Computed example of a mutant assay.
Amino acid sequence: MLFLKPIINGTGNCYVEPETRNRERMDLVVDYRGEQFVVELKIWHGDAYNKRGEKQIAEYLEYYELKKGYMISFNFNKKKEIGVKDIVVGDKLLVEAVV
């Protein structure tokens, strides 16, 4: 949030844990220059947990009628693979960053 606020200041908005109509809570939604960005934040708890997170954000994208979303995974394992990769879930594209 500290990083995003100065970037979107005056040209967008940032919403933390906004609620959908079916009472689900997303982690972060950014409106910036007429575009909407959905961001899911996860702490790494294994592959199965990560797959559920990917499915979760794909559902949020469906709700907002978006094709692309973002997931930031915080992995505290010493042998983690850091980086950014594209993942396709159905007809949705997820950009996942592992830090």
Rank of each mutant, 00 (worst) to 15 (best):
L2Y: 08
L4D: 02
I7F: 09
I7A: 03
I7C: 03
G10P: 05
G12H: 09
Y15N: 06
Y15L: 13
Y15D: 07
T20P: 09
R21T: 10
N22T: 11
N22C: 04
R23A: 12
R23T: 13
R25K: 15
M26D: 00
M26R: 03
D27P: 01
L28Q: 06
L28T: 13
R33T: 00
V38H: 01
E40T: 02
E40W: 03
L41T: 06
K42I: 01
K42W: 00
I43Q: 11
W44G: 00
G46Y: 10
G46Q: 12
G46F: 11
A48Y: 05
N50H: 12
R52H: 13
G53H: 04
Y60E: 01
Y60S: 01
Y60Q: 01
E62L: 03
E62Y: 05
Y63Q: 04
Y64A: 12
E65C: 09
K67I: 03
K67W: 00
Y70A: 05
M71L: 13
S73V: 15
F74C: 02
N75I: 07
K78Q: 13
K78D: 09
K79P: 00
K80C: 02
G83M: 09
V84F: 11
V84S: 12
V84L: 14
I87F: 03
V89Q: 10
L93N: 12
L93M: 15
L93P: 01
L93G: 01
L94Q: 06
L94A: 05
L94Y: 07
V95Q: 15
V95H: 11
V95D: 01
A97W: 04
V98E: 07
V99Y: 14
V99R: 12
